[in-house]
Design a protein around this nucleic acid. Structure first.
Lengths: 187, 187
DNA sequence: ATCAAAACTAAACGATTGTTTAGATATTTT
DNA sequence: AAAATATCTAAACAATCGTTTAGTTTTGAT
């Protein structure tokens, strides 16, 4: 064996994630990552292979952070109410980490173009349909929609969530609250 | 006087706008702009000063394209119904120009970070509040909300619009339809 | 204590970024 | 026709991009 790493990968990835979260993929440079992660370019490449690799790990880190909220939703016995709670929980999560950062997933979905990295695109679509599935399961708990109505409501809610996450950087908390309340008023 | 320009500024800006629309600000390079606009870098700088200048003009071009839909909404005698029509009109607009491009305004709002160009940020916030104002005026035409309720509905709708525009790149037309229908079902 | 291997520092890589400049070309006015 | 001037081409600018490499330092096993 040989020398030990002077850093913990999960720790430096969290710092990288925050940088990507704040600035987006393109704007974030390796130079900025070096500074924020506190390690040399060599170490970054040794651990994560490429800038894209750092970003993919950052997305996993972000998803893991959201997982607590999603688990809470999944384990709730309530239906629509628990989804509404998730919307508010997400706003708190987004706000508490650092005001105005919005959501790394939707930020990325909105930033990348058609010919972006396929692996990144897959992470985004997979996560989106996973959350949609959780919404659908929650809807089934409480009320008795028809199967088509269920899918429509699930579509409605996943897009509402996606929209809220996107909008959370642009709008005031009071406006976001109005949005959530109206979204669930007549569901 | 001297030699005449071999291009029309409004024409090359429209091409630039389409490039920004497709790829975002950061990903779009001067090299790509040269190719797409069909003119030399020198000419681009002579006409627009900088990459940022090209982008600002592109945003104006995009707003001008949306203006037809907004005028239609403003001139309509109906209230909520006309806003719903605007939502559908926007989807058609976004789709007909080139499938999956979404909205240049929300794309930009989602891409840029905190320390982005102030002028760009102003264009985004100004346009957003302008559209919100138009929504509010439409709401006043039909029903008799209280003033606070009116503002809440306006907040709801502008965020719903922002969200729809953001989501239009990620979701299927049928899903977006579900979103619009549910959005206006309970207004 | 020595040797081998992994992790570090730091410099350099070619490519590309946005921007500028020098020189050739074309057009209008005198 | 000639002088003036704006527009063009094309090359170069310094700076930064993501990535690699050479050389040094530290560690664990023999």
């Amino acid at each position: 064996m040989a020398r030990k790493k002077a850093y913990i990968e999960s720790e430096v990835i969290e710092k990288a994630m925050n940088l990507f979260w704040r600035n987006g993929y393109e704007t974030t440079s390796m130079q900025m990552l070096e500074k924020e992660m506190g390690i040399n370019k060599f170490s970054i490449y040794a651990s994560f292979g490429s800038k894209n690799g750092v970003f993919l790990e950052s997305l996993e880190c972000y998803k893991a952070k959201l997982n607590g909220l999603l688990t809470k939703l999944k384990e709730s016995e309530k239906g629509v109410t628990s989804i509404k709670t998730y919307f508010y929980d997400f706003l708190d999560f987004s706000k508490n980490n650092e005001f105005g950062k919005g959501c790394l997933i939707t930020n990325t979905a909105n930033e990348i173009g058609e010919d972006a990295d396929a692996e990144i695109k897959k992470v985004l679509t997979d996560f989106t349909s996973e959350v949609r599935g959780i919404f659908k399961e929650s809807l089934q708990k409480e009320t008795s929609f028809s199967q088509t109505s269920l899918n429509q409501k699930a579509d409605y809610l996943i897009i509402a969530m996606f929209g809220l996450a996107s909008a959370s950087r642009m709008f005031q908390p009071s406006q976001l609250k109005s949005y959530i309340e109206n979204t669930f008023d007549n569901l």
